[in-house]
């Protein structure tokens, strides 16, 4: 394992008004490893993921991407200054994100969705961007759908395009926010298969999921969140086999029934 983790989360806290959603979460994600986050709805999993790429600004704590703090360096007086948005955008390129609702841009074709960020953000030439997009679409097994509009795709296909769009930024890590939760059961497999392939290729991934089989078989570490804190963490065998926390045991027994 490398000395500097791909993603390091340190004592992350987030409140919405009086509601404390995250109460001090710390963990590391090492390069090439897959971390699954499980837990009941409202346990803070999605908020945690959105704090990592700063779609939500954490109330306290810090996220380091390859050792670089997202929130900006600490000044001599010990204060942490918020980075300018331009800096944050630069760091976000290193984190591909896949959303529960896919969030494809409906006015662009599949290929248009995938080349948009490489063109506008990474300033690639159109020719290179299209070549890259075709590679990414091949990885999600949708090479033939480039010219379609998202409205013509099934949910599973849309989510795979969203994965290709995130891959096209060639990120250092991928964040998945319940990628199969809004899919019909018969469509989840095609998405999970792609995710397993990415994991096998050595992609660094954080996956918020309700798919216990995926968490158990495809991840290196599993975090169980409860009330904004990590209640249980460890390799899948341990978390699923001998959970120390009673709450985790209850959660899993309900999920695995």
């Amino acid at each position: 394992m490398d000395a500097v983790p791909a993603i390091r989360v340190v004592d992350l806290r987030k409140s919405f008004g009086a509601l404390e959603v995250l109460r001090g979460v710390s963990f590391d994600v090492h390069r090439g490893s897959v971390v699954s986050m499980i837990g009941a709805s409202g346990s803070g999993k999605s908020t945690l993921l959105r704090c990592i790429n700063r779609l939500e600004r954490p109330s306290a704590g810090e996220v380091f991407i390859d050792g670089e703090p997202m929130g900006g360096p600490v000044t001599a007086s010990g204060e942490r200054k918020e980075r300018p948005l331009k800096d944050i955008n630069r760091m976000r390129r290193d984190l591909g994100m896949v959303f529960q609702q896919f969030n494809l841009w409906p006015h662009m074709t599949v290929i248009g969705n995938v080349i948009e960020a490489p063109l506008r953000v990474r300033r690639m030439s159109r020719k290179d961007a299209i070549q890259l997009a075709e590679e990414c679409l091949a990885r999600v097994h949708l090479s033939e759908k480039g010219k379609e509009y998202p409205a013509r795709l099934s949910g599973g296909q849309m989510q795979r395009v969203a994965i290709a769009r995130a891959l096209a930024m060639q990120p250092k890590a991928m964040l998945f926010d319940e990628p199969t939760s809004s899919l019909d059961p018969e469509l989840t497999d095609e998405v999970l298969t792609v995710m397993r392939e990415l994991a096998a290729d050595g992609t660094t991934m954080i996956v918020v999921t309700h798919e216990m089989a995926f968490a158990r078989d495809a991840s290196d570490r599993v975090l169980f969140l409860h009330n904004g804190q990590i209640e249980e963490e460890g390799p899948p065998d341990q978390v699923f086999g001998q959970p120390r926390s009673e709450r985790c045991r209850q959660f899993l027994s309900k999920k695995l029934q």
Partner: peptide, 26 residues
């Protein structure tokens, strides 16, 4: 939908690019 903007931000797009490429065309 807010998610369309989030998707742009997550790709590192700036707010101006999001307005002209994602919001206004729709």
């Amino acid at each position: 939908p807010q998610g369309h903007l989030d998707a742009g931000r997550a790709c590192g797009m700036g707010e101006t690019a999001i307005l002209w490429r994602i919001v206004l065309p729709q």
